[in-house]
Design a binder for these strands. Structure first.
Lengths: 346, 346
DNA sequence: CTGAAAGCGCTAACAC
DNA sequence: GTGTTAGCGCTTTCAG
């Protein structure tokens, strides 16, 4: 029984009665031609032996891998999960296997993770991480090492693209958070909303920052503004949204300030938290105070009231990012689409 | 400038003035001892050259990889995403890189995907896919090939575990859907509910099937039963839940049957769909008709009314699955925990 | 403790 | 067309 440990190409070649080289050529479309009969014999042998080529060995021999590395902040986050889904699909279509590493949102781990990724010698890498303002230097360094090692790199960045976009060899896919948020602001203004607050999340996050900037700018274009004290920061999460909204509510309750009639949360998750906070005070979200989010997280479609938001084609973004990294996609920008729903009905 | 293309161990050895062998031994804890001075010189050289070992080459030489393959149904599904997150974390702790492949829920693609996975020669593989009743034979074949190739395999299965659990070398992690659903049924019965329906999802899915069975059995233990016509099948999705619930509602409206006062959806997503359907008819979910789900999807925590469910520690499940595949976890079963909330308040 | 050399499984010139 | 023979980058005996 030849079924012992692992079957190698040599085993197949032997069984087929051809040389290693011929077997290799028969099993994958090499440039060289192989007589049909040999091809058949080799295939038969491979099948009989249940041979599966060792990808690692092929990579070493060829000097190039079939791996696409995807680095995400947190795969459990629906935002990244959706991007990952799109990326996996596109990579699959390109015959690449996706390797996912997670930074856990920890900027410190980022360098470490990228070092591991570099060891993989991926054909391309897609970076879908939560960038923080400032610490772009080291990221830039790690990334240029990847590029030097031959990997095409695509990064998903916000409008405020820092280091990465500047590194040669990087094909950024920029998500236009700025203009998306501005468009949302405009739409809300046209709905007649005129008193706003922003649940800004973590101001150090590039994404959050850009959305706040965009929203404020969009409002300004309509002659409206958000008082500084109405831009409240918190964690970039459901609970952060809940907490920030509670702060606003508390302030109004104590008479320290009036309650804004419309609140923009920089992500749907925060918007959901805000909804809960509003409800806890006995107010009706969407009526007493409007709430808008960003991303259009699918899973939140049934939240009541339905959340007005800026829809981002997440899966498509993932797919386009891999295509960019592979160098087959020219367009490097993605726009969000404003979707008005019941949460800001007035 | 040595920074050209890729830096190899030979470059490092040369710069450090030692042999290839010594450099190799210095860079990773080989059994053999290396003089401290040499170690330092090698490390210095590696640092200077920005050397990163080629993982593939190491794999070929060592005959073993540092890859853990995770096969999921659909990474965009929060259920799988959570499992993936836990798996990635645990793999990371074991020094393994995770490769994710998605079957897209397509049983046909499964064999294909597993062939690719086999080529990766992963140290271990975790199968987190939606199994269908019946077609276990081929899966079993593919899996035993993986096992033969030296991979530890862990599969997440329901109580109704078919082929996989039987394949030698497989360390199944069984999720006790049956008893979880039974416990939920019991809890609802004790709450006083006495008229039930089940939104069964796709009856061919092992998971859905087990949950229905368990629920029915749990009810039976309390002397209650679900009329056959009240077990309605549909897609295993949010929309499926909506549609199935609508069917029930229609029936009641036409006087063909009375409306069950409590509905069990085999997954939270379906429960959400059911909530929406109930609301569309002007009824109040949680009051006019109770709804319970399964999984306790985190993202759905803010849905109103809060959904009673069976909580599954998804991330932990992912982590344990990799530990099982690695052979370091003995316990092969996971229990869900019944969580009663407003949706079944009565 | 260190180096030379033989692989690991496969590919790619380079001959025949 | 097909076989021979170098490698790919790294690990690991086996001698010093």
């Amino acid at each position: 029984m030849p079924e012992r440990g692992t079957v190698t190409l040599a085993d197949v070649a032997a069984l087929a009665g051809v040389s290693l080289a011929t077997a290799s050529r028969a099993l994958n479309g090499s440039a060289r031609k192989v007589r049909q009969e040999s091809v058949d014999r080799v295939h038969a042998a491979a099948l009989e032996l249940r041979y599966t080529a060792n990808v690692q060995a092929q990579a070493v021999a060829r000097g190039t891998t079939t791996t696409l590395a995807l680095v995400v902040g947190d795969i459990a986050d629906p935002y990244f999960a959706a991007i990952a889904a799109g990326a996996i699909k596109a990579a699959d279509e390109a015959g690449l296997v996706v390797t996912i590493t997670s930074t856990g949102g920890d900027a410190g781990r980022e360098a470490e993770v990228l070092a591991v990724v570099a060891g993989l010698r991926p054909r391309a890498v897609v970076l879908a991480v939560s960038r923080r303002l400032g610490n772009d230097a080291d990221l830039g360094a790690s990334v240029s090492r990847l590029v030097a090692a031959g990997a095409g790199v695509s990064a998903l960045v916000s409008d405020l693209d820092g280091a990465v976009a500047g590194v040669p060899g990087v094909q950024p896919l920029v998500i236009r958070n700025l203009s998306g948020a501005a468009a949302l602001a405009g739409a809300l203004a046209e709905l007649g909303h005129d008193s706003f607050a922003v649940l800004a999340g973590d101001p150090d996050l590039v994404t959050a920052h850009a959305r706040v900037e965009g929203f404020v700018a969009g409002l300004a274009a309509h002659g409206l503004r958000v008082p500084d004290e109405c831009i409240v920061t918190s964690e970039f999460s459901r609970d952060g949204g809940h907490q920030a909204m509670t702060t606003l509510l508390d302030r109004a309750a104590s008479g320290a300030a009036s309650l804004p009639r419309c609140v923009f949360a920089v992500t749907d998750l925060m918007a959901v938290g805000a909804l809960a906070a509003i409800r806890e005070r006995g107010l009706v979200p969407g009526v007493d105070v409007g709430v808008a989010g960003f991303d259009d997280v699918r899973m939140l479609a049934d939240v009541v009231p339905a959340i007005s938001t800026v829809r981002l084609p997440l899966e498509e973004i993932g797919a386009r990012a891999v295509r960019r990294a592979l160098g087959v996609e020219a367009d490097g920008a993605v726009d969000g689409e404003v979707v008005l729903r019941a949460s800001t009905a007035r």
